[in-house]
Amino acid sequence: MSAQESSRHFNEVQLVVFQLGKEYYGVDIHQVQEIIRFQSPTKVPGAPSFVEGVINLRGRVIPIIDLRKRFRLSEKEVTKDTRVIVVEVAPHTVGMVVDAVDEVLRISEDKIEPPSPLIASIQEEYIQGVGKLEDKLVIILDLQKVLSKEEKAKLEEIEENKEN
């Protein structure tokens, strides 16, 4: 194996893989702070429709985003598998409600393709790439683009109001 092939082999991305419906999504593990069981958030008047509310996570007010609503997918009841992935969406910490967390996965960068313009289930700008595994495809999300500047500003407003 040449040095170039060897270095390419070690360029891996580590993802937290979760489900929304039958689809698999992944986020960079370095952006994930923790994964918790779903807890009913406190509703916040005037919040965007995909913001379920806020929770108190060890003294910190965390906005909770329903990714199904954010990606305009059909709603689903909370189950025993429903989880909240607490992530960093600079400069905010937010919780993302997902149907289930599947696994932590290492995937070689050569198995990740840029997003196809044919992906219609969510807006293409949220997608960093698509990971090809033997038994499934994993849509890799760009968390920094899941929320617009205006939505991030609204989250900041929600956090400040709840802390006061």
Rank of each mutant, 00 (worst) to 15 (best):
D81P: 00
I127D: 06
V87Q: 10
G53M: 07
P91C: 13
R106A: 06
V54W: 08
L67A: 09
E23Q: 10
L141K: 05
M96N: 07
Q39Y: 09
Q123C: 04
E113W: 10
K145S: 12
R72A: 12
Y24V: 00
E5A: 13
A100F: 00
E160I: 06
V89W: 09
P115R: 11
V44M: 11
K152F: 10
R37E: 14
I62N: 02
V13P: 00
K132P: 02
S108E: 07
Y25I: 00
D135A: 08
M96I: 09
V86R: 04
E34R: 10
Q128S: 09
L147M: 10
I158L: 08
R58K: 15
P63D: 11
K76I: 00
N11L: 14
I36S: 10
E109I: 11
G59L: 13
K111I: 00
V13K: 11
S108L: 05
R60C: 01
T82R: 02
I127S: 06
I55L: 14
L147F: 09
E150G: 09
V27N: 03
K22L: 06
M1A: 13
G95I: 03
K22V: 05
R72F: 12
S148R: 14
K152P: 01
T93H: 08
P115D: 12
F38V: 04
G131A: 14
I119M: 13
D81V: 03
A90N: 12
K162T: 03
G95R: 06
V87W: 09
L141G: 02
V98P: 01
Q123D: 15
V87P: 03
R72Q: 14
G46W: 15
R58T: 08
L141P: 01
T82E: 03
V27Y: 05
I36G: 02
P91S: 12
I139R: 01
V84P: 00
L73V: 00
G129E: 07
F10N: 12
S116T: 12
L118V: 04
A120P: 00
V51G: 03
S2T: 15
V44C: 03
M96C: 14
Q144Y: 07
I127E: 05
N11Q: 14
F71S: 03
N11S: 07
I119N: 11
K154S: 14
L105N: 01
V104S: 02
H9N: 13
R106L: 11
F38S: 01
E103A: 02
L147D: 04
R70D: 07
F50P: 02
K149A: 13
H30C: 10
R70Y: 07
I55Y: 12
R37M: 11
E160C: 01
F18H: 03
N11R: 13
D81N: 10
F18L: 02
T93Y: 08
N56E: 14
L118P: 00
